[in-house]
Design a binder for these strands. Sequence first.
DNA 1: ACGTGCGGGACATCCCGTTATT
DNA 2: AATAACGGGATGTCCCGCACGT
Lengths: 192, 192, 192, 192
Amino acid sequence: MARKTDAREKALRTAERLFRTQGLAATGLAQIITESGAPKGSFYFHFPGGKDQLASEVAERFASHGLAAIRSAAAVTTRDAKGFVELLCNAFAAEMNASKFALGCALQNIAAEKAPYDHAMTATLETAFQSWTAAITEHLADCEVNDARGMATALLAALEGARTLARVQGNDAAFRAIAGHFAASLRESAEA
Amino acid sequence: MARKTDAREKALRTAERLFRTQGLAATGLAQIITESGAPKGSFYFHFPGGKDQLASEVAERFASHGLAAIRSAAAVTTRDAKGFVELLCNAFAAEMNASKFALGCALQNIAAEKAPYDHAMTATLETAFQSWTAAITEHLADCEVNDARGMATALLAALEGARTLARVQGNDAAFRAIAGHFAASLRESAEA
Amino acid sequence: MARKTDAREKALRTAERLFRTQGLAATGLAQIITESGAPKGSFYFHFPGGKDQLASEVAERFASHGLAAIRSAAAVTTRDAKGFVELLCNAFAAEMNASKFALGCALQNIAAEKAPYDHAMTATLETAFQSWTAAITEHLADCEVNDARGMATALLAALEGARTLARVQGNDAAFRAIAGHFAASLRESAEA
Amino acid sequence: MARKTDAREKALRTAERLFRTQGLAATGLAQIITESGAPKGSFYFHFPGGKDQLASEVAERFASHGLAAIRSAAAVTTRDAKGFVELLCNAFAAEMNASKFALGCALQNIAAEKAPYDHAMTATLETAFQSWTAAITEHLADCEVNDARGMATALLAALEGARTLARVQGNDAAFRAIAGHFAASLRESAEA
DNA sequence: ACGTGCGGGACATCCCGTTATT
DNA sequence: AATAACGGGATGTCCCGCACGT
């Protein structure tokens, strides 16, 4: 049966923003409902599993959007690992900039409060990160980078860490640093 | 003057562990007091600023311990950038292992909930990360690494991100990946 | 006209069981609907008066079933007051046993939460108890028992109280005690 | 350490009255706090176990008060089983009268919502009823009544059931009926 | 330095009853 | 006869910060 309202969607979008900004526990359902304009009475109709279900769905949405971003960056940088890395860093930096360095990574913020003790959530997060790593690895391998998987993991870790540094520093210097580092590393690797 | 009790110290240690595991908002003062065995009545004697002061002091303690760890790694790897990077990665990985991958970075977890809107806390965190970056940069420069500051930033970002990946994956693969990547990058750089 | 669905009947049966087990306020409509398998959407079509109407109908059903049980016990114990009392006690005990001592008396549970402030419900309950008392009195009088009405009231009170004791004790000892007591009382009365 | 306020006591007294009138689930903590004038903020300081602990303590208080009432009735009816039974019935009836037939038995109301699935509460209730049965049995035995335990159980069951009937009927007829019945039964037994 | 007690508010959850729609 | 969705409020629980006494 087709959905009749967008209440669910509004709640998910607002929850994602707040979880990324404040974390999970610090974000009350009341704040989500108020800021999203979603109706209060039907929250448990849409999310019978409560806040946990909401957080899980936010994680899954965020993961699939991130995966799409990676794939679209890969699509425009065929055979160009250096360009791919720089495009990825710029995309992350641009989103941080647009939010005035307020938005963290939803997966990271959820992990910080739940992993590894909440097994269901940890599994969701692991799948999400795995999908990102695999997509990056695949493209780097297509570009004939050595140890594509190791570099993909290092790049992903650096991007995640750079988000935290950027929030604290209020600028995108960390993203420029990692873009520079990984680009240099790829150039030297190619020359070798 | 000698301290009279260790209530303050116990609270700080327990708060650090809980903030690293669950985050700030999800950790109640009651839990800290209960788990630390500290007395209830004198919490606001020791921490008149309440939970905020506690979090600030945890951040500062964590920052100075981290700085000491970086400097001690540097002290045993004179002129050996590759050894330094590997030692650092191993140290981070070892701590995660010992905690069964439950402990995040205190600075990161606090940043996730407070930056950039809580200006005082953000400033504290920025100082902390800056001290780490400076120490790493200094040692890499001593080892005559090109763009020491850029690599230091990338390395720190990667270490922070690897903590999240390790918590979610339940293993230290991310640390091994970044150790391998940065070591290779340093070798090639030296050869060039 | 034949009924179209049994949704109404299923709701009533499930509500009776839950009201007897948990009481009125502790039983939510959601639980009744879920456990009965009845459709959610048409509850207020079948019971426009809501939970109050449901409770009233449960009380009336329970009262008429109880009355039928009393009359059928009377029918097989003509001129045998002692046999009637024992049969009644055994019937109550058997139902408790079958439910593993989980079921209280619907009238008693509703009375515990509503009497005497809810006048409509109190009137329904009074009529119900009155019908039981009258039926017992009538049969005892047919058996030529002295003060049939007094004994009927005492017997009914004891049966109601025994239900509570049986639930708490997890056995039917209370029913056996009152069967023994009232039977002895009737024998002595007959001898006198 | 001596208690410093009567907040605990006020909450217990009000909770007992409300549980007896409305039952457990229908009585909110907010109502207890409001009507008792007890402070809200320290409720979980006094009752860390929450509503369950409150209900348990109410049950225990009610049980010990009831036991005291039985013993004091026994103390003034030495060797007079009939007088004892009548005194007990009158005492129950008088309390009902004074409350305008609004107060049920705390143990019965709690049992109606919790027994037998809440094991801890059921055990508390069983101990309570057992103490009452034992005290009545003991006095009847002292009065040389045959089958003192059986009669004690029957009497207790009748008293409990009479409370429900009295609430519904709005008068103490049920108490007078059981007083008459048990007194007659004792007289005949003595004559036999 | 510490225990007891309180004030007032927020939390996630669940409630019952009512819509509009079909 | 049933569904999806909603309104608004109540639930028990827990929170942080602050008194007062010792």
